[in-house]
Write a protein that binds this DNA or RNA. Structure first.
Lengths: 184, 184
DNA sequence: GTCTATAGTGGGATAGAC
DNA sequence: GTCTATCCCACTATAGAC
């Protein structure tokens, strides 16, 4: 996504604004063009089709999530306040990113990844912090499922109005922390 | 959903076939009518709009899921093979239903529930078995998140091709089982 | 309960001129 | 790089006759 022409970069930026404001369904080629002051057909000079634009957004979101998780990992290591091997900090960072960019999170996490349209390594980088903390593929996938599940339930408004979502996260992360052999 | 006219029941049955075969997006009023050998406008004599048809499907799915979970609960209680307070059995039943009816599961679980269009109690009944096994709202919601997350990741093809999804479920459920005070 | 006809809205994408 | 002009598609829903 760094290797885009300036104009293409502007298009992706506008696409992101549309998605963040109105969700993936608000991203239409017409609306995207309108936001840039041009007509829809002009977009096809910069991107082959709509899915190429979406793929750029997914790549950006994955990279941003990776940065957020790496930051939490680093803070935990340096700060030393150990609430359980850093799992809690990672979970909080994950949830915080999703809540800060709900529609982008959905775009990134719903449906199969368009892996052929993504820069190499971006998916792995986002997954790495968790893999460094949780021992074993199976457990890491379970924690991933837990985090993703809690996020989408929250975003979908599935919890009752007064529900203490933070407590659910704490209960989930501590269950895994307790069952883990510490990593250090 | 039991209080539907015979014709309405046929319409819902056809709608279910469409969704199970092609997902929620395959359910259009045109396609639904075509499957019944009639025209789309005729459907509006039986249902006020499309969302009413979808709500019937969601109610059916919730009820079926509840039955599956209750069956697992009962089998666990009677059979006595204790692999951890019955959480494992509940998880297997949950996943089995979702994998057997992936598109129906998505329809039921994506987005906010149309609670005003659902029969009273159907949501609570589906949630009850888990609440009976897991002590505490926070932990129950965490387990719910774990189950939902693992299911949608699997349905979305997010796991690598060779991934051992069953192992991830086992790791997840056993983490909670270990951290739980047994219920009985 | 079904039909025809139709309104109204929205979408992705292409051809070819400038 | 942008435009106009279009084509194609699809959808929900209503009015009114039979």
């Amino acid at each position: 996504m760094a290797d885009l022409s300036p104009r293409a970069g502007q298009i992706v930026a506008a696409a992101r604004e549309l998605v963040e404001a109105g969700g993936a369904e608000a991203l239409t080629m017409r609306a995207l063009a309108a936001r840039l002051g041009i007509r829809a057909p002009s977009l096809y000079k910069h991107f082959p089709d709509k899915s190429a634009v979406e793929a750029e957004l997914i790549a950006i979101a994955l990279a941003e999530l990776a940065v957020a998780l790496e930051r939490a990992e680093r803070a935990e290591r340096d700060g030393g306040e150990d609430d359980g091997g850093g799992l809690g900090a990672l979970g909080r960072a994950y949830r915080a990113y999703a809540l800060a960019h709900p529609h982008l999170y959905r775009l990134m996490s719903a449906g199969p990844l368009p892996r052929d349209l993504l820069p190499a390594g971006v998916e792995e980088r986002a997954a790495a912090p968790l893999a460094r903390i949780v021992r074993g593929e199976a457990a890491a996938r379970a924690v991933w499922g837990l985090a993703h599940g809690l996020v989408v339930l929250e975003l979908d408004g599935r919890f009752p109005p007064g529900a203490d979502v933070e407590a659910a996260w704490a209960a989930g992360m501590s269950a895994f922390t307790a069952s883990m052999t510490a990593v250090r």
